[in-house]
Simulated assay, not measured.
Amino acid sequence: MSAVVSTPVNILEESQQLGEMIIQSDVYHQYNEARNRMDNDREAQKLIKNFTDVKDKYDEVQRFGKYHPDYKTISKEVRSVKREMDMHDTVAEYRRAERELEELLDEVCGEAAGIVSPTIKLPGNNPYFEDEAGGSCGSGGGCGSGGSCGCS
């Protein structure tokens, strides 16, 4: 038996075909529709802008942490505004569609990595590296998390 040798041109062509298949998928179409609905929803855009503004304040307060005089107020406000934004129907629908697309892309990347080598490590939050306890990469941090990893 002879091994199949892929040239860089073949790999690029196959990658492009794979990308086209993903773009043609129902998951991608649902993501795109949800994104368009959210982008065209004035109330959702108002909530997103409000969250972004409060998040900027929060980031500024975080420089000083709990020693900043507005730390508790801004921390509470950012959680409240984020919850309000996340509970909006079109934002929640977009987040669900985004998660489904991410799961598809993670699965495709895992399959491609597995073809190259079964020992390739992928970033955390990937079902290919979850153990029975639900943790990622044995120690719960994931190979790409920057922490110590329990993979062997």
Rank of each mutant, 00 (worst) to 15 (best):
G140K: 06
M21L: 15
Q30H: 11
P69A: 06
P123G: 08
V54P: 03
C109M: 12
F129N: 09
D70P: 00
A133V: 09
A92G: 04
S136F: 13
G142R: 02
E100M: 08
P127A: 10
G65C: 04
K76Y: 09
A34D: 00
R37G: 00
H88K: 05
E98M: 08
N126C: 12
G144N: 05
A34L: 01
V116Y: 10
C109D: 12
Q17I: 09
S15V: 04
G146R: 04
A34N: 00
M85R: 15
R83N: 10
E130D: 10
D106R: 15
C137E: 02
E93R: 11
R79A: 14
E93P: 00
E103P: 01
P127F: 11
I11N: 03
P123F: 06
G135F: 13
N10M: 13
E13G: 07
N32R: 15
A44H: 03
E43K: 12
G110I: 03
C151N: 12
P8S: 02
N50H: 14
S25Y: 07
E111Q: 14
T73W: 01
Y71W: 13
I23T: 12
I11D: 06
V27R: 04
N125Y: 09
R35G: 01
R63Y: 05
S2D: 14
D53C: 08
M1K: 12
E107K: 13
D131M: 07
S25T: 06
S136Q: 08
A34E: 01
H88F: 02
N10Y: 06
V9F: 07
